[in-house]
Nucleic acid binder design. Sequence first.
DNA 1: TTTGCGTACTTAATCGTTTTCGTAAGGTTA
DNA 2: TAACCTTACGAAAACGATTAAGTACGCAAA
Lengths: 341, 341
Amino acid sequence: MVSMKDISAACGVSVATVSKALNDHKDVGEETKLKIKKIAKEMGYFPNSSARALKTNKSYNIGVLFVDEIPKSGLTHDYFASILDSFKVAVEAKGYDLTFINSNNLRKGRLSYLEHSKFRGVDGVLIACVDFHDPEVVELAQSDIPVVTIDYAFKDRLAVLSDNTKGIRDLLTYIYSKGHRKIAYIHGQRKSRVTEERIQSFLDTAKELALEVQEEFIVAGKYRDIPNASKNAGELLNLKDRPTCILFSDDYSAIGGMNEIKARGLSIPEDISIAGYDGSDIALQMEPQLTTIIQDTRMIGRIAADNLINMIEKPGKTEVEHVMIEGILIEGNSVRQIGTN
Amino acid sequence: MVSMKDISAACGVSVATVSKALNDHKDVGEETKLKIKKIAKEMGYFPNSSARALKTNKSYNIGVLFVDEIPKSGLTHDYFASILDSFKVAVEAKGYDLTFINSNNLRKGRLSYLEHSKFRGVDGVLIACVDFHDPEVVELAQSDIPVVTIDYAFKDRLAVLSDNTKGIRDLLTYIYSKGHRKIAYIHGQRKSRVTEERIQSFLDTAKELALEVQEEFIVAGKYRDIPNASKNAGELLNLKDRPTCILFSDDYSAIGGMNEIKARGLSIPEDISIAGYDGSDIALQMEPQLTTIIQDTRMIGRIAADNLINMIEKPGKTEVEHVMIEGILIEGNSVRQIGTN
DNA sequence: TTTGCGTACTTAATCGTTTTCGTAAGGTTA
DNA sequence: TAACCTTACGAAAACGATTAAGTACGCAAA
C-alpha cells in the first residue's frame, strides 16, 4: 500500500505538499504539482478512504436501509430492487459508494440504525422498504444525517413518492371508461401510506364517477402474495353478484388472480377483467398483457440520489422537497370493453 | 460524537485503558472495566469504523462486485438478487457490512475494481454476475484480497457453483421419462461457464439416453429475454417436425415461450410441453405450474458468505473450496405424459 | 533482604490523511 | 533601504482508535 509518505520520500517534498498537490490546492508550485502527480501515478498510489474519512468527516459513502427481515429483504422485491439499482448508478456517477445499514454488529452488540450509520460515517442514507413507524427508523430519519425516503415522507426530510392517488385514479377511470360498473379492489396491507392512499383514491374516484362500490368489493389482501391473491379472487368470484373487473394490489397478486380465474375455466378478459399495479417485467409480457400502472422506478431512484447528494453537498441551499413521480397507465388487454358494443 | 477520549476523561483513566476495557483485554481490572463499560453506554459511545480500520487494517466490511452496466445491474436479476440477499443476511449476522464495489471515483478519476476495493479497505469481495473474462475482474480475483465467486471458479479461489450439469441431466431425464423423444433446448448466451455446462450436459444426457437430438432443436437464445424467447419458440413451432417439448434457458424465457404457444391457440402441456430453469417465484405459481429446476439461491449465498468469512478470519486454515450446490427438480405440470397411456 | 513476577495501569507511537500556521525567498512599493 | 506582499513549501497537530513497551506496586519465593 503506497502512501503519501512514500510519495513524499520519492519526490523529496513533505507529505503536506503531496496532499495539497494531489488535491489541487493553490499553494503548490505548478512544476512540483505535476511531478508529484506523475510519481503518484507511477507508484500506483490511491488514497485510503478510512484515513481520509477520519480526518475530513466525509466518507463519500451513502447508507442504504432496506428491511433486513430474514429471510427476505427489499433486494428480492423487484420494485425496490429496481429503485436501488438506479439509485446506485446515480450515486456512483457522483463518486459515492453504497453501504447497507443494518442493526447487527458483532463487536459491540446491537447498534441502532442511527448508530450504525454514524459508526460507518455515511454522508447520507436512503431509506426504503421499511416499516416507517419503527422507532429506530424514525430516529434515523430525524437525525442530523441527510436522509431520503421512498414512498413515505417525513416532515422536513427529502422524499420521493410515487403518485398512487393519480395511479389509482387513472386506472379506475380507465376501467370505468371501458364500461365496467362492478369493480372490486383487492388492496395490500393497511397502515402503510401507499395502501391508504390507494384505497382513498379508489373511493374518491368512485365517488367522482358516481360509481357505487359494494362493501364486499373492497378486499383486504397482501402485497405480492400469489396464493393469497388467488384465495381473495376466488371469494370475489363466489359472490352471487360478482364484479366484472378485479383490481389487484400489484402485478404478482394479479398473477395469483389469473391462476384462480383460469382454474375455474373462465377466461381473461372475456369472462372477467383484471388489472395490476407496478408494471413489472412479467406483467408487461404476459398473455393477456396485464393492464397496470408502470411505476417509474428508474426515475424514482435517480431523483432520490440527486436530491440526497445535493442535500449532502449544499445543505443550506437545498430545499427539502417531496417529489411526486407519476406512473403511466399501460392498457394491455386484460380489461375488456363492456356494454356499449 | 463521543469518543474514547471523552470516556477516559469521564472515568479518570487513560484512553488506552478505555480501549482495552471495551475490547475486553485481560490487563484491565475487573472493576475498572465495568465502570468504563457502564459510562461508555451511558454516554452513548460507539466506535468509529474509520479510525479502527485505519489502525487495524480490518474494516469488517465486504465488497460486492455486481455488474454495473447502465441501466441494469445484477440487482434487478432475481437469481442474483436473491443470492445477494442471503449473502447479506449471513455476513451481517457475523458483524460484517456490505459495500458495493464499482469503478467510479470522482476525486481520483477511474479506479480499477482492485484499487477501489483497497481504497475502501474491504476484507473480502463477493464477485457475481459479472463478465469473468474482464481483466479487472481477473486482477481482483487474483489479488491478495479474499474473494468468492458465484457460478464461476478461479483457480485457488473460493467459489460457489450451482450444479448445472446435474440440473439439466435431471430435467432432461425427467422429460424423457415422460415419453418425450423430440426435445428442443433454447439455451442462453454462449461463452459463459453456465451455458456451456448446460449445453454439454444436455448433449451428454441425450447420448446416455440414446436420444437423438436434431441440430435445429438446439437454439441459441438469450437469458431472461421474453420477446426473444417467443421468437425462438415460434421458430421451433414452425418446423415441420416440431419438438414435443421445449426446454428454455430460464423461467422468464419460458414465459415468453408460453405466450407464443398460447398465441397460436396451442395449449400447455396438451399440445406442447415446456420446462424452465431457476425456480423463480412466478414459475412456481403460474398456471400451468412450470416444470423447472429450483436453484437454491439461499444456500448459495449463505455458503459463499460462510466460506468467505472463514477465509478472511482464518486464512491459513481455510481450504479453498469450489462448492457445488444442487438444484431441485420441480415437476409442475407443464410437461405431459406422452405415448405409454 | 533481594529478586522476580503478575497485575493494573499509563505513555507514546502509529495508521494515512488534511489543514493550520509558520517561514524563507523573492519581488514591490514608498 | 525599510516595510510589506506573494509564493511555495514544511512542521506539526489532529482525526479516533490500537498496541507495544514501560512503570509502579504488592506479594511470594529464595
